[in-house]
């Protein structure tokens, strides 16, 4: 059942610009580094012996922001497809369970963000090579910087999807989305328990893997709570 719903959901996002946004996010993050390194490449290369590591640190300084902003935009686009003409009622009166409808939406968003993260990795690698940062390409670090923030941001995705799919007024998920971006921007002053801090991979133990584990754990939890609430509610 979920396969059918996924195919239908991927058809519905056609011409909505969601794929383009998934490309634009990582491209924007790298474009900022293009400006950064374009203007002061020699200075930056002098700052550290580990040019790749230093470059990836810079890339990562914008990743959480782009990710949280992307999640807010993608979820509200996704919900708007069904909200626009109240197509929820048509969708739910098909022979499908509400749980699988919700799961399908989550998986589509998850895949879009996965593609973004993958593109981020590819773009980082590409621009890094172009900058001639050295032959010792740190593939493992590259993967970590691309996918750790994604996994650590899963709770934000689950929360935004929950809010967007149960709100009659789409102003609410947009507000929480904007707040999330502000939180993500000020990650270094946030306490460790705030989910908006997690994509920055910062914590007091200086161990990014903790954020990833928390992200997957709390993300699953928030997903289940959101799904149950969605199933419980009457469709307007």
């Amino acid at each position: 059942m979920i396969g059918k719903l996924l195919r239908a959901d991927f058809l519905k996002i056609k011409r909505k610009g969601l794929w383009f946004l998934s490309f634009l996010g990582p491209f924007g993050v790298i474009a900022l580094q293009m400006v950064n390194y374009g203007v002061r490449k020699d200075y930056l290369l002098n700052q550290s012996d580990d040019d790749w590591g230093y470059f990836l640190e810079y890339v990562h300084s914008f990743t959480p922001l782009a990710l949280v902003l992307g999640i807010a935009i993608l979820t509200s686009f996704m919900a708007s497809i069904e909200n626009e003409t109240n197509a929820w009622k048509q969708l739910i009166s098909l022979p499908v369970s509400k749980m699988s409808v919700y799961l399908s939406k989550f998986m589509v968003l998850g895949s879009l963000l996965f593609v973004s993260s993958l593109l981020l990795g590819v773009f980082s690698l590409g621009y890094g090579i172009l900058l001639n940062l050295g032959d010792q390409i740190p593939y493992l670090e590259l993967l970590k910087y691309s996918f750790y923030p994604y996994l650590a941001a899963l709770p934000i995705l689950a929360l935004q999807l929950w809010i967007a799919s149960v709100s009659q007024n789409q102003g609410i998920p947009i507000t929480t989305g904007v707040l999330g971006v502000i939180f993500a921007y000020s990650a270094f002053i946030l306490p460790d328990w705030m989910i908006w801090k997690w994509p920055s991979l910062m914590n007091e133990w200086d161990e990014p893997l903790i954020n990833v584990m928390l992200g997957i754990g709390v993300g699953t939890l928030l997903y289940i709570v959101g799904m149950l609430d969605f199933t419980r509610r009457d469709v307007k």
């Binding site: 011409r15 909505k16 626009e84 003409t85 109240n86 197509a87 929820w88 048509q90 969708l91 009166s93």
Partner: peptide, 15 residues
């Protein structure tokens, strides 16, 4: 085994 049209028609305008 049921088909339905509830109130205003629902559709995806961009499709």
């Amino acid at each position: 085994r049921v088909g339905s049209l509830v109130e205003n028609p629902s559709y995806y305008p961009h499709l």
